[in-house]
Amino acid sequence: MAYSDKVVDHYNNPRNVGSLDKADQTVGTGIVGAPECGDVMKLQIKVDDGGLIEDAKFKTFGCGSAIASSSLATEWLKGKTVDEAEEIKNTQIVEELNLPPVKIHCSVLAEDAIKTALNDFREKNGMPVVERKGHH
């Protein structure tokens, strides 16, 4: 199976690799994993006073598609409000990166990481958390 050009690009030049201070009140952290392949992903957002995501970082140990999915996710997160970020769907990641069916779970992992990070931020700041619905 060949990776698409966009996956290869994100894999070779991952955007926003790194960590933010987990204890910071303005930082939300999402740590998730895929039990079927053992990939692990950490995604963090930093929200400014105006409620906009000013920074996003990730660290993923896993396959190229998982790295590309989280790298793309951090690009999309920047500049969005927390509520706008909630709207990012794994299907958009699949479309943008042209992921084959066997790699769809990588995009699901990225969506999970985003939502966990957003809820972590909400929880820290006394905002109501958003219930997760089932996904595919």
């Binding site: 994993g33 039990p35 079927e36 392949c37 053992g38 990939d39 896993g62």
Partner: peptide, 9 residues
């Protein structure tokens, strides 16, 4: 078994 792949990786 759900944790096994994380440990192996």
């Amino acid at each position: 078994l759900g944790q096994r792949n994380y440990i192996e990786n």
